[in-house]
Design a protein around this nucleic acid. Sequence first.
DNA 1: GAAACTAGTTTCCTTTTAGAAACTATTAAA
DNA 2: TTTAATAGTTTCTAAAAGGAAACTAGTTTC
Lengths: 119, 119
Amino acid sequence: MGLQQETSLSSECIWQLRAIKDTMELLSGKWKIQIIGTLLRGGTMRFMELKRALNGIAPKKLSNDLQELEVNKLITREVKDTKPITVEYSLTEHGKTLDSLIAEIIEWGCTHRKEIITG
Amino acid sequence: MGLQQETSLSSECIWQLRAIKDTMELLSGKWKIQIIGTLLRGGTMRFMELKRALNGIAPKKLSNDLQELEVNKLITREVKDTKPITVEYSLTEHGKTLDSLIAEIIEWGCTHRKEIITG
DNA sequence: GAAACTAGTTTCCTTTTAGAAACTATTAAA
DNA sequence: TTTAATAGTTTCTAAAAGGAAACTAGTTTC
């Protein structure tokens, strides 16, 4: 779930391939960018708040993705001593640095769709 | 293999989710960014040149990914009337616009690794 | 005529990813 | 006392992704 080791060393640009792999493994999948985007917009949110905001996500998936994001220090998880207990998730400062990358992903996607549709 | 339709309409920001999905579906997977990056560096390349540059890719995977990139107008495929026939793959102008996005993916990946390693 | 190069395709198999449904356990409200 | 909310976990299943090996088919070199 953390950073992976390289298995073969072929080119002198291994560090670039490694950086691509690190980033893409964190952002790939159906829900991870949506989770980060939701926390960017909504700030601190509880588990069920996230679940409701992310229309259709299964609790298992949300739980697993949140754990992976926490291991990678993009979010923090804080258990509140309320009754019933609540758990608050927030982006770290490091997690917030994904803001501009996600914005560029959105922008390229828009440009791309225009390119494909208008032929 | 082309652009997907939305199935549900939940928020007013559907176009953003759609743009993220479009971009990530094109870039996700083990080889696609590597193929694009190889063509960015190497310019026009033949099938076997690409296969050799992309250490370890199976011909089936390379063939499938190239078709998907072609459908999305990121690359062109040109059959040359040589003997034996050769096939040349190049990035389109649209494909080349991924350059800066990939650069940012690499940069974020480097920053991230430092963040994780140095605690 | 056999081997090798071109660019793939086909088949089979394993791994990864995701979803649905049911369940745990604590607490509070009606 | 039943219902509902909190935050998950467990189990089972389906679909997607990826890899290995063999094969096609035309041409060229040895």
